[in-house]
Amino acid sequence: MIKRLSVKNHETIAKDTFALVLKGAPPHKPGQFINITVPGEHFLRRPFSIADQEDDEILVIYKVFGSGTQALSEVKIGETLDCLTCLGNGFGMTKHKHVYLIGGGVGIPPLYYLAKALKKHAIDVTMVLGFNTEADCFLIEAFETLGTVIVATLDGSRGIQGTVLEGLKDHTVNYYYAVGPNPMLKALTSIYKDGEVSLEERMGCGFGACMGCSIKTKHEPKRVCKEGPVFKVEELVWKT
């Protein structure tokens, strides 16, 4: 759907990291994303995961990365943004009674909405969240209301020093959901085989039309925007 969503709240929550609340959205599933037209001379839209939804209000948490996210960060409360909503398939529900949610950096936001949904299904969650440094950390207190949280920072300024892999030491991971940079996902999926990961790819459209985001999987090519962004670990083949 194409929707003009109005900015209800927009604030800094960590270093270069913003929380954007948009009103007027149709219902989304955890793991789905929206594609936003950002202000200024940006021809393509920018894709962002849904970090939470309550009624018609969605939360997007993003980091300023380049000029498009920079322009987005300057949008004021009350302005409207043109969005393609309800994109992609969300995370699958699981039969497991306890699962791990593993996130790196701005991969973390969609896990919050997922954690809330899993709790509603009486599934216990342990979150393992990786950041570069303490100043980058966000959403930790919110996650703590939902389950056990393990924080890892590369420089050790908060929680365990290292990556999410260090955070997972001594844990038996039966089923997991992971979102984050490709090197993190590649390392995780080489160790833990039963789970789902959400991927990012450069997108032309975000709704299946251009084949721009098509990746090879075990059996056939799949579009990250349409058949994804969530994939079963066993489907993935990593570029070498």
């Binding site: 021809f43 084949m211 985001c213």
Partner: peptide
């Protein structure tokens, strides 16, 4: 991939 790049 990447197969897409934005330009002016």
């Amino acid at each position: 991939v990447p197969r897409i790049a934005e330009v002016t």
